[in-house]
């Protein structure tokens, strides 16, 4: 296959990876700081997309909508933390799984009740449509390049937040020793609400950005939630660095697998069968990757708790 196709697919893999990182960083922060496993993280993704779609439709401005989406997701996150999540911190993981599973049902059907069963309209703004021509005559959508840019910006911002600010210091303290920061007089419940809202806001940002490329509909958060879990487990739960690495790895492996596995099988199978077998194997690929990594590194690649 041609080099231009490969370059384009690498970009696609990175773009998928950066969006996964936005989801996974929140999940992994919440786990690292509060020890909470949150299945409802995909719901904030959905909330972000719906809010962005609704506000964009009424104001006509994608940027205003995007801001509204992030704020809505963060607010809903804070609210959920205050009402439900904080009762779960010292519960077993099992209770956390059940409660957040229930939250998925509530959010999905609640959204359907408010917005109806039909998918919502959300398109990239006109100034972000179109494509740029890369070397080798590869055309690449501006919007996707922008997604990569946002992903990198957020990664850097998160790095500074965690390593340079007071809040980041507390988060790091919380990750390594929860009892300690309580003893130091940090207002833990405020910190927890803040961290949870931050994670929800990042998920909302991902939902809003990706929503413009995909279908804004009920249940849109679930496939990406499962992928985000794969990411943080591969990277090591609680580790932002691991989330970044895992996200890029999953994004690249998934994208390249989808393209090159069918092509590979075609070298020794009839085309129609090869496409089917290749697509089937591509669907399983990241789970196989995850099983292999965990078989050798049971705590992921960059475990924060080791």
């Amino acid at each position: 296959m041609s080099v231009t196709l490969l370059i384009e697919q690498l970009l696609n893999g990175v773009q998928l990876g950066t969006m996964l990182f936005l989801m996974a960083s929140g999940l992994t922060l919440v786990f690292g700081v509060m020890g909470l496993i949150n299945l409802a993280h995909g719901s904030f993704y959905m909330v972000g997309a719906y809010a962005t779609a609704a506000v964009t439709a009424s104001t006509g401005s994608f940027l205003v909508g995007l801001g509204a989406g992030i704020i809505a997701a963060a607010l809903v996150g804070a609210l959920v933390e205050l009402i439900v999540i904080r009762r779960l911190y010292h519960r077993p993981h099992l209770d956390q799984v059940l409660a957040t599973f229930a939250l998925i049902l509530i959010f999905s059907e609640g959204t359907r009740w408010i917005f109806g069963s039909s998918p919502m309209r959300l398109s990239p703004p006109s100034w972000l449509t179109g494509f740029v021509t890369l070397p080798g005559d590869t055309r690449y959508p501006i919007y996707r390049l922008m997604l990569i840019g946002v992903g990198i910006t957020v990664s850097i911002a998160l790095y500074f937040l965690i390593s340079k600010t007071r809040l980041g210091m507390r988060i790091r303290a919380g990750e390594s020793d929860r009892e300690m920061i309580g003893a130091l007089g940090v207002n833990i419940s405020k910190l927890y609400t803040l961290v949870f809202a931050l994670g929800a806001g990042l998920a909302g940002l991902a939902g809003a950005l990706v929503g413009a490329l995909q279908s804004v509909q009920v249940g849109m958060g679930e496939p990406v939630l499962i992928l985000a879990f794969v990411v943080i487990v591969i990277g090591g739960i609680g580790s932002i660095k691991g989330a970044l690495f895992g996200a890029l790895l999953v994004g690249l492996v998934d994208t390249l697998g989808r393209v090159y596995l069918p092509i590979f099988f075609r070298t020794f199978m009839p085309p129609s069968e090869a496409s089917g077998v290749g697509a089937a194997l591509a669907a399983m690929l990241i789970y196989i990757l995850m099983a292999i990594i965990l078989a050798f590194k049971p705590k992921g690649l960059f475990s924060a708790h080791d």
Partner: peptide, 18 residues
């Protein structure tokens, strides 16, 4: 050519490039 995607797939960048 005939291309097969995953069920419920949300990102088609790879297929569009092909």
């Amino acid at each position: 050519d005939e291309l097969y995607t995953q069920m419920g797939q949300t990102d088609y960048a790879a297929e569009i490039a092909q």
